[in-house]
Design a protein around this nucleic acid. Sequence first.
DNA 1: ACCTGAACACCGTTCAAGT
DNA 2: ACCTGAACACCGTTCAAGT
Lengths: 188, 188
Amino acid sequence: MSGLTQRKLAAAAARLLDQGGQEAVTMRALAEAVGVSHNAPYRHFRDRSSLLAGVAFHDFELLSKAFRSAAADATEGAAALRRAIGAFIAYGRKHPARYRLLFSDPSLPAEDELKAAAIAPFEIFVRIVVRCQQEGTLPPCDPVRLAGMIFATAHGAIDLEIGGRASGAKGLSSVTDTTELLLRLLKP
Amino acid sequence: MSGLTQRKLAAAAARLLDQGGQEAVTMRALAEAVGVSHNAPYRHFRDRSSLLAGVAFHDFELLSKAFRSAAADATEGAAALRRAIGAFIAYGRKHPARYRLLFSDPSLPAEDELKAAAIAPFEIFVRIVVRCQQEGTLPPCDPVRLAGMIFATAHGAIDLEIGGRASGAKGLSSVTDTTELLLRLLKP
DNA sequence: ACCTGAACACCGTTCAAGT
DNA sequence: ACCTGAACACCGTTCAAGT
């Protein structure tokens, strides 16, 4: 697991996702990008689906790191929450195809290792929400549900934007606007 | 436009989406489902992408109708809002692949006719939000932004659920829970 | 006008064979 | 152990030809 060639392949797949989206990630384009024969990737990944799972695993850890930094760098919970949401939005905008792979694509395999990596960022997010509740900047209620709700709003706004569904007429012109409005109205 | 065979093809495509998701909708499977040669669909749709656009157009109108019914059948704005959100959730759960096609898929073409159909349900949704504001069951602020925010939350929760990202640990076990929590916390 | 079969350039994946 | 070329069963799409 995770030998050098394997990591090189996953990195190349991430690049293909950024450049041309899901459909650009063909096993053959990947092989060519790395400079091997069209079927060599099968030595390192069972199939296309588990290659994408490898990219997703890496990126979930990346987001965990970003959320941890947000929590550590801010002195107040409210600031930590805004930084975490900001990192989430920035990732979605910079890497739309990878974002969808992580948070939307229903074909992503449900392996235990990947599921654990997927839950990690959310758990950090919950801890930030708890801090806000202790500070009194978020209402007192079940923190997991509250975090889930805020997370769903951010995800929905990001997904609508990168899917091109957030025309001005929809009041979703800015993802930051949407999440800011939510946080403002949630203030107790 | 919209001859009999064309509508039969779009209906068959919707069925394929429901049964096997995006990847099951191949021009060849579609042709077989309707009983014509593998390239006959090209007489009615420019390509696969515009076939999917045809399905999306039909479903946007379906949702507009559902939202209009929600608005008409309820005597109070708050009830209308819950019915509209309920219809939105029910559609997403019953037709996940079609839901993603309408609200997530970035490859959906950006034709004017389709964009108009896509905005229609949201405009009805905004009017319901305005009614809630007049009743005092939603806070007074820019209604389009508020509607956009509620819509984003519902979409995010639905998308996470049909993508299999809403394990219990995420506090997103029930989409209805998430939207209910939002509406409860938004009550002025 | 509408449909057909053949064809082209792609795919993912497998397999026997090489070093 | 790792890579290769050939092959298979699929795709979307085009085109010349039929009625």
